[in-house]
Design a protein around this nucleic acid. Structure first.
Lengths: 162, 162, 162, 162
DNA sequence: TTTT
DNA sequence: TTTT
């Protein structure tokens, strides 16, 4: 369509360390879950209520995927801009399922880290996570259907983007 | 969470006339599908490509629900702001399904009509739709599980919001 | 700063045809004024009130400057994203003055045309303006301090971006 | 105008403690300066460059003015949404001057605190500022043209909004 | 699965 | 005047 806008702006915290995989053409793709939450006072009970929303984020933008891989960890707070995209996929029962993701496309999107404590790749996540980087769910030894292991950052300049 | 933001900004066109229902407490709820589209030149084939994305919009905000009911019709272009919300529901097979919607909550959200041609409730939709208002999918005669019929606009001031 | 965001989102109408100039390095820069307006009911008098706000827009992004030069005219409605920037300049009396602009930077920003009627460069602006393109304020014959005349669009692909 | 949008989204840090004044009708108005910054690598020198932008924020929204007065201090990082508004004022030389501000209006705007360390009113600002609250620039003893002293928060519920 |  |  002509003249349309599809923009999502989120500020939230990562639920886990990001996952890194690569497309067949070798492009790095970084995924993570981001939590946002609303709090309000229930009008009837007067109680404080909270609803947490989980968002699936997928980063195709090369520079931002590098930043995400190197600096994002469980618990960190980020600002990001992306677009809504709903994927259709087949469950094992052959039925259609739909998943809506926030995509930071090849050319576009924004990603800014909002808390200052940072952990470079290879370090422990410290207060953010008990798991060392390059382990666990992010490195499954190349099993079918899983993520690739993280790649070296050789060639990424050494600027810390925050 | 504390310090989180969950905001969606869309500019797109309605795929159909909006649907109006009411909650048990009598609150009007207006729903519609909004199309946005990306166009780009395929790098390999050089062809012009287009991807249309459909978004499910749900308006709880009272004032904006009134505007949506009275002035939105199939084809109209709108600007809106809402929040992402994913609902879990059970399919007939008992399986969990998830649907992500853009919600304009009771207190919040924005909705602005961007094309000037307008059709008041009760008129024909003209170029926007062949279906008369107050018919079709929006009025199912009160069947179980369906939408309620649209209500009178008595009490809505007569300002046209665009 | 590290973790900052500076974003403006506007939907409004051009007050005049855009002005096109070129930097010393030959980069095209397109400027225009955009009107937005708020309407509300005055609480005391009950009267309908309106306030129009004028925004100064400056487009450095090459692709968007091309779009702006070719397709934007007085009266057209656009969606745009840019950043706030305040410039300091000296008045003739030697005093400092400040002007705040919305900048679409070299690499970034968005610009989307929201009304469909379009006028290519060289055509009359029709309903949008009585002035022919390539005239008036936009072409001052190269006087000191003025804008350069618009350049040819040779090399701009022929896609209409809306 | 019909169908316009005027929205600013900022994430930045306060340059000083906020200033609190009251309108003639008794409405609290909170003002502060917010810094955002861009960093980039200069293409010619290859040097790291930074440009800080200062934004004038004015909060009319009652709830958000309370939050700003109670919890914002020099150095804190916030997310906010407002609208651009340019005010005309007369300098002492009788000349017109213009100042552009980001306004969080009576009914609207957003303000979210993004760093967790917080200081309630009456406490020292601690790491954020050496100045005690309720002093300095924020309280000028009621001099002509200055801000009023901060008011009591009686009536503000005790929820900490972050 | 996050955060306060 | 902030922050990294």
């Amino acid at each position: 369509m002509a003249g349309s806008v599809n923009k999502v702006i989120l500020v939230g915290n990562l639920g886990k360390d990001p996952e890194v995989r690569h497309s067949q053409s070798g492009q790095k793709i970084v995924s993570f879950s981001l939590a946002t939450s609303d709090t309000w006072n229930d009008r009837q009970s007067g109680e404080r209520r909270e609803r947490t929303e989980w968002h699936k984020i997928v980063v195709f933008n090369e520079r931002l995927a590098d930043v995400a891989e190197r600096f994002l960890r469980k618990g960190r707070k980020v600002y990001l801009e992306g677009s809504l995209q709903t994927r259709k996929w087949q469950g094992q029962d052959g039925k259609d399922n739909y998943t809506t993701e926030i995509v930071l496309p090849r050319f576009g999107g924004e990603l800014t880290i909002l808390d200052t404590r940072h952990t470079e790749e290879g370090e422990q996540s410290g207060g953010y996570s008990n798991a060392p980087r390059n382990s666990g769910t992010r490195n499954n030894g190349g099993q079918a259907g899983g993520w690739d292991a993280p790649q070296s950052n050789a060639g990424l300049d050494d600027e810390i983007p925050f």
